[in-house]
Simulated scan of single mutants.
Amino acid sequence: MQPEKKLFTFEETKQKLVNYCVYQDRCHAEVEQKMREFVLIPEAKEEILLYLMKENYLNEERFTRSYIRGKFNIKHWGKTKIKIHLKQKGITEKLINRCYDEIHEDDYLKTVKRLYENYESKLKGLKDYQKRSKTITYLRSRGFEYEVILQVIES
């Protein structure tokens, strides 16, 4: 059984969605998902989306840049994992690639190196090749590219 949809006036709904976008950068897919909670005719949804974009509450590039910064700096995700998650949110590959300049190459390599050293030091009782293999698998799961991992290991 579906929960009751909330009934608000057009202006109240618009204000709620403005607040939703102001609280944190959002992508179009998240806003459209939020709109499903409200009873709206398609024309009203379109008008609200246009208003949010026109007033710069909804900006796909700003969202992408902030998402990349956050996932890299806070969660220490690699570019591959970030790209997969952004694509799931409906962000184009072209935009994602354009926004990767938010991650500086030096910081990226330092992060891979730090994660590599931390993880490898926790592995006890394994042969060197086993440690290396497990660590590479771990870093790949964090979204780092194999070439970058090898570059860090060999340096």
Score class of each variant (00 low, 15 high):
130 Q>I: 00
120 E>K: 09
92 T>D: 10
144 F>A: 05
55 E>F: 04
103 I>G: 02
59 N>L: 01
136 I>H: 09
99 C>F: 01
44 A>Y: 09
127 K>Y: 14
104 H>K: 13
125 G>C: 05
2 Q>L: 02
117 E>M: 09
86 L>N: 00
51 Y>F: 00
107 D>I: 10
7 L>H: 07
116 Y>N: 13
88 Q>S: 14
128 D>M: 12
46 E>K: 08
54 K>D: 11
120 E>Q: 13
2 Q>M: 13
115 L>N: 04
154 E>H: 09
43 E>Y: 05
49 L>K: 00
37 E>A: 04
45 K>F: 04
134 K>F: 01
133 S>I: 07
66 S>L: 00
3 P>V: 15
60 E>A: 04
132 R>S: 12
5 K>Q: 05
50 L>K: 14
143 G>T: 09
83 K>N: 13
79 K>M: 08
11 E>Q: 09
109 L>N: 05
118 N>W: 02
54 K>H: 06
134 K>P: 14
81 K>Y: 13
142 R>L: 13
26 R>C: 02
39 V>K: 13
48 I>N: 01
2 Q>H: 11
117 E>C: 13
154 E>L: 08
20 Y>Q: 15
138 Y>R: 06
6 K>S: 12
109 L>I: 11
65 R>Q: 03
35 M>Q: 09
32 E>Y: 10
67 Y>G: 03
1 M>N: 00
15 Q>Y: 10
90 G>W: 02
12 E>M: 12
102 E>A: 05
144 F>T: 04
70 G>L: 04
151 Q>D: 05
120 E>S: 12
31 V>Y: 05
51 Y>L: 02
139 L>H: 10
138 Y>M: 03
98 R>A: 07
41 I>Q: 06
3 P>M: 15
88 Q>Y: 12
28 H>W: 14
63 F>I: 02
28 H>V: 12
